[in-house]
Nucleic acid binder design. Structure first.
Lengths: 177, 177
DNA sequence: AGCTTTATGTAGCAGCCGCTACAAGCAGCG
DNA sequence: CGCTGCTTGTAGCGGCTGCTACATAAAGCT
């Protein structure tokens, strides 16, 4: 039997969460899909709550890394083009697992969970930075522009999640600049 | 003992869901807060799944009614003003319970639940109609304008849910017209 | 080698879950 | 009255939940 630690476990745990969501997470199926037992998850993480905290940290990190690898490195030609690029790429099927857990995180935030709020806020801040860096250099106010772009991207993604992607697309097309 | 039916039960059930969310809904606490037993909930609704379906229907209806009572009846002076009005009003504390269940619904959509997708889509369509009716009469394209307004509103609301309302506000301010 | 610390398996606890079998009450109706 | 059908209470089933007590194996360390 291979010795395991939080670090070696986390990728497998995160993969399971991306497929099955956070909302209905339970230790035994999670452990099984990572090749361990619930007993060992509690041993390594102390409690389910702290396991989820570690998971949120890991997922936030993984997301920020995915951003820089899956997305084109160069700047967009306009705010609208930037938003459209993010929207199109995150619409591809391989991003569905991430959004599945993302909306669980948002729901956790709305329920008042502090750990979820921290993780979600960090992810949004990181995404905001990414947008700032991908706006045209000619943008008159990249910080404010990135906020506008991020808001409409997120709205479009939520609408897509509930089967109304066309509405979100219209929002993107209405972005000025 | 008062005779109860789905119809007399639903308001109490919906109230409980607005306070406690849909994600962790379980029959016994739900029944207790409605003055019944899990036994009777299953009796009236057949199964938890069908109970949730009825609940989603009821909540969607209740939401559309709340829209017309809580919001000013007259048209806004601009797209931006319309979005800002909705954002401000829905930011008041009494709307928190609705958003709590709303983000649970979105999470259910992302998980692929058909009933959640239907309910969420209906709510968004109704909200879209509402925005169309509250845009200025001078709007050159109310349908497309309403889509743009709705997308940025929803993005702003999500960002507010995760503690980044300032980003969403910037998105609203960037709305043209 | 012996001893300590770390990692793991087995078994189980108390509690909750959706749901159901059974029986009783109760209303209306002949 | 007696019968019938709708509504409700009680009790419980099997299964799942997070978590733990206990024993054991494995890996250092001296």
């Amino acid at each position: 039997m291979v010795r395991m630690s939080r670090e070696t476990l986390l990728p497998a745990l995160a993969a399971h969460v991306m497929q099955n969501g956070l909302g209905s997470l339970s230790l035994r199926p999670l452990a099984r899909s990572a090749g361990t037992s619930d007993r060992m998850l509690i041993y390594h993480f102390g409690s389910k709550e702290r396991l989820v905290e570690a998971l949120l940290d890991f997922l936030a990190l993984q997301f920020t890394q995915a951003l820089d690898t899956a997305f084109p490195a160069q700047r967009s030609v306009s705010r609208r083009a930037c938003a459209q690029t993010v929207f199109d790429i995150t619409g591809q099927p391989e991003f569905a697992p991430f959004f599945r857990v993302w909306w669980d995180i948002v729901a956790g935030c709305a329920a008042g969970d502090r750990a979820y709020l921290d993780a979600a806020g960090r992810i949004m801040d990181r995404l905001l930075d990414w947008v700032v860096d991908h706006l045209p250099e000619s943008d008159p106010d990249p910080v404010e522009g990135a906020r506008a772009v991020l808001a409409v991207i997120e709205g479009a993604q939520m609408l897509r999640a509930v089967g109304r992607g066309a509405i979100g697309q219209a929002g993107l097309s209405a972005l000025e600049g």
